[in-house]
């Protein structure tokens, strides 16, 4: 079987868009991680309200680091959509 180049190009584009959508499932991970960190942060503030500022900054730093995997998948999705 041989296909026309336009057909193959369309298949490739479709696969790239599908891949971008599937890849963004990785967004689940940072969501769970950040929510867990926020819950633990709320617990810590409840136990020690006087250390609120310290806990907040530590929590935000940890959440931003936990976001890394989501950012990776986002960059890959961007490449799939706009470059491939």
């Amino acid at each position: 079987m041989d296909f026309s180049p336009e057909f193959l190009d369309a298949i490739m584009k479709a696969a790239a868009y599908l891949g971008a959508g599937i890849g963004m499932i990785a967004g689940l991970g940072p969501g769970i991680g950040q929510g867990y960190a926020a819950g633990k942060g709320a617990e810590a503030v409840g136990r020690q309200p006087e250390a609120r500022a310290e806990i907040m900054s530590t929590m935000l730093l940890g959440q931003a680091v936990a976001e890394t995997t989501g950012i990776y998948s986002f960059v890959i999705a961007l490449i799939l959509i706009f470059v491939v």
Partner: peptide, 13 residues
């Protein structure tokens, strides 16, 4: 790589 992509991805996103 992780250091640079984190900032870039957040700004572009």
């Amino acid at each position: 790589i992780s250091h640079s992509f984190r900032l870039f991805g957040n700004v572009v996103g």
